[in-house]
Design a protein around this nucleic acid. Structure first.
Length: 488
RNA sequence: GCCCCCAUCGUCUAGAGGCCUAGGAUACCAGGUUUUCAUCCUGGCGGCAGGGGUUCGAAUCCCCUUGGGGGUACCA
């Protein structure tokens, strides 16, 4: 088994979490790097919580990020089906095998009995383990319980004597467990559906998975699975348990750990670019060889390796994501950012459904002018008001104060006159004109730029002045200059 | 409670015994880009959790403590 085959196996029980998508990414990167196969398997054995809708969400978010899969749900493949709910008969077959080998047994204990058992154990400072009371039920006893209509689960029979189980983990090294800390765990629920630990073993074997790359929260489950691999005479795959992603408060990333957003969909909706997301996520737990951190996905694939994966948990730092994303927004092709920005601008009422050619050209210029200060595209609505709405000074007293400074009347008049005669309103031409006017005036930059900016935008800060003027156009610029002059 | 993992600037990390007076990124601060916010450039602030060993020498190896995380389900 030399071919690299990895899988991402999420449960369709909710929105897809940042931590999960990082797991998907690392699997995908490893498959690309090793020229292996990346498989998407849906683990929907929790019938109560799994929905088709969330499976769609998983596929959509992966597609958005460009994490394409070679085999699996939707893509198909030789070793399907790839949805666990469609593989029940397969698990049954292997459950039979364990039963036949006397490595599994039926348990008739009710959830209430089990709860009681755990409670007792806890009170006596014992580990809350199943005590194995159904392990040696005779055929007669079983029949009697069946006759009473008791439902049964199938439990795995732990080895009688203590056994060391060593997980050879690619990121953590050898991790040793004792079978003593385990109990006879359930492998098939009373409704005939396998549990996670059982299904995952059967599937990883049948789908010929070479490397199981998953979150570290699964490390503790691994000894159980290793016992199952062994019991079924399956070859054990390689394991790599990725460090957890934590929230700002160092607890598990969640709505309560200080982050506004923990689902990948929320970042998508705020206008984060997929390549920024990928770049950022790749840096959580993995680091490139040299010091450059802004990397294309091809560069990441080229450098990626499980060897370089860190083993300590990482805090999700949205500040750094913002920096990266802002970078990608500035570097991206303009029309792409315009397209991404359009829905936000529409929703905020700045632009119409249909744009004329001229309107689109103006929009392009606005987006280009403003993109420099964005962390994510949704923020654009906070920066464009000055271009779309009638200018209103929020603080008229302050405006007067600014305009009534010495020589400011001269500044505004002179600028107005020269802009009145200017024909070319391209930002280059306007920039040149501004410089020329400033040179003629008996004031420095401070008394020029700030009052003019305030006159044109009603703000102390904003995009480059020459861009503002160029976008506003002659008519509107002169109007605003007049409005300022009227206050003096 | 028990088991497992982890521990370098606020954060992401480099560092696999001497190359480390610990490097980079981000964030923050200051200066520059003849105004400002942002971008960009330059500089600065800031860290090996604590204690024992091992060694000529430890951020690096071992042990303990402390702290954090995960698991302990008929969830995955």
């Amino acid at each position: 088994m030399s071919e690299t085959r990895v899988r991402f196996a999420p449960s369709p029980t909710g929105q897809i979490h940042i931590g999960n998508i990082r797991t998907a990414l690392f699997n995908w990167l490893y498959a690309k790097k090793e020229e292996g196969t990346f498989i998407l398997r849906i683990e929907d054995t929790d019938q109560k919580r799994s929905t088709a809708e969330f499976e769609e969400v998983i596929k959509q978010e992966m597609e958005w990020l460009g994490l394409d899969w070679d085999e699996g749900v939707q893509a198909g493949g030789e070793l399907g089906p790839y949805r666990q709910s469609e593989r029940i008969d397969i698990y049954e077959e292997y459950a039979e095998k364990l039963l036949a080998k006397d490595l599994a047994y039926y348990c008739y204990c009710t959830p209430e009995e089990l709860d009681e058992m755990r409670k007792q154990a806890r009170e006596n400072d014992q580990a809350p383990k199943y005590d194995g009371r159904c392990r040696d039920l005779s055929a007669v006893e079983r029949e009697k319980l069946e006759a009473e209509g008791k439902e049964a689960v199938l439990r795995f029979k732990l080895p009688k004597s203590e056994k060391k189980i060593v997980v050879e983990d690619l990121v953590h090294g050898n991790v040793e467990f004792s079978s003593e800390v385990l109990d006879d765990f359930v492998i098939v629920k009373s409704d005939g559906i396998p549990t996670y630990n059982f299904a995952v073993v059967v599937d990883d074997h049948l789908m010929e998975i070479s490397h199981v790359i998953r979150g570290e929260d699964h490390l503790s489950n691994t000894p159980k699975q290793m016992l199952l691999f062994e019991a079924l005479d399956f070859e054990v795959p390689n394991f790599a348990h990725l460090p957890m992603i934590l929230g700002a408060d160092r607890s598990k990333l969640s709505k309560r750990s200080g982050e506004d957003y923990v689902y990948i969909s929320e970042y998508r909706k705020q206008g984060y670019l997929p390549e920024a997301m990928l770049n950022f996520l790749s840096l959580l737990g993995w680091s490139p060889a040299d010091e450059e951190e802004i990397l294309s996905i091809e560069e990441i694939i080229g450098q990626f390796g499980l060897q370089e994966v860190n083993n300590s948990p990482a805090v999700f730092d949205v500040e750094k994501l913002n920096w990266l994303n802002g970078n990608y927004i500035r570097e991206a092709k303009l029309d792409r950012i315009v397209e991404l920005a359009t829905p936000y601008l529409r929703e905020a009422g700045y632009i119409e459904e249909e744009l004329t050619e001229q309107e689109y050209a103006d929009l392009e210029q606005i987006v280009d002018t403003v993109r420099g200060s964005l962390d994510y595209v949704a923020q654009i609505t906070e920066h464009v008001d000055i271009f779309f709405n009638e200018l209103e000074y929020e603080d008229v007293d302050k405006a007067e104060e600014i305009f009534k400074q010495e020589d400011v009347d001269l500044v505004l008049e002179t600028l107005k006159d020269s802009l009145d005669t200017l024909e070319d309103y391209s930002s280059e031409a306007v920039l040149e004109e501004l410089r020329a006017v400033l040179k003629e005036l008996p004031v420095g930059g401070r008394l020029f730029y700030h009052p003019v900016r305030y006159a044109l935008s009603g703000q102390d800060s904003g995009p480059e002045l020459y861009n503002i003027i160029s976008i506003l156009g002659k008519e509107e610029t002169l109007r605003r200059l007049d409005k300022a002059l009227s206050l003096i």
